[in-house]
Simulated assay, not measured.
Amino acid sequence: MIDVWNMAMSNPADPTVLQIDGFTMRPLQFLDLEALVSIWADPEVTRFLPSRGVSIPRENAERALQSFIHHD
């Protein structure tokens, strides 16, 4: 039997990438730093984080991203 779920979700070139209806999810990369800094500068986003509405400085975002990337 063909596993339609895995065929629709996986990228044969990279099994760590999920693709569903034009949405792509992939592991974080250092290239994502600018996007993370921008997101974490928004008080509407950070109000849901431990900083409780306070923007997270770039240095902290960079350290966090490094930790996310190297987390096993």
Rank of each mutant, 00 (worst) to 15 (best):
A64L: 03
L65A: 02
P27Y: 13
F23R: 13
M1N: 03
L65N: 00
E62A: 04
V54D: 13
N60H: 15
Q66E: 06
P43E: 04
S38R: 11
L49G: 00
P50K: 02
V37D: 08
A41I: 05
I39C: 09
Q66C: 03
P12Y: 12
E34T: 09
L28V: 12
V54C: 11
M7L: 06
T24V: 14
I20L: 15
M25A: 14
L18R: 05
S55R: 00
M9R: 05
M9E: 09
Q29Y: 09
D21W: 14
P43W: 01
L49D: 04
V17N: 01
A64F: 05
M25W: 13
F48C: 03
W5T: 07
F30T: 14
R26C: 14
A35E: 13
R52K: 15
A64Y: 02
G22Q: 11
L33W: 09
S10E: 09
S51V: 04
R52D: 12
R47W: 00
L65F: 00
S10H: 10
V45F: 04
S10T: 13
H71I: 00
I20G: 03
L31E: 14
T24P: 11
R52L: 10
H71V: 01
A41V: 02
A35N: 10
G22V: 11
L36Y: 12
M7K: 08
A13F: 06
Q19D: 10
Q19V: 11
G53E: 08
L18N: 04
R26N: 15
N60P: 07
E59C: 04
E34S: 14
M9V: 05
R63K: 15
Q29L: 14
E34D: 14
I2M: 01
P50R: 00
P57G: 01
A13H: 03
T24K: 14
A35T: 15
F68G: 02
L18T: 05
T46R: 07
A13K: 09
N11W: 02
E34I: 02
L33M: 11
I69Q: 03
N6L: 06
F30A: 12
N11Y: 04
M25S: 11
H70T: 12
S55C: 01
L28K: 10
N11S: 06
A13D: 10
D21N: 15
V4F: 13
T16L: 09
S38L: 07
F30W: 13
R47E: 00
L31K: 14
F48I: 01
S51A: 09
I56C: 00
V4D: 11
A35Y: 11
A8E: 12
D3H: 07
A41K: 10
G53R: 03
S38F: 08
Q66T: 03
W5V: 09
M1R: 02
P12T: 12
P50I: 00
W5I: 10
E44G: 08
M1F: 04
I69M: 07
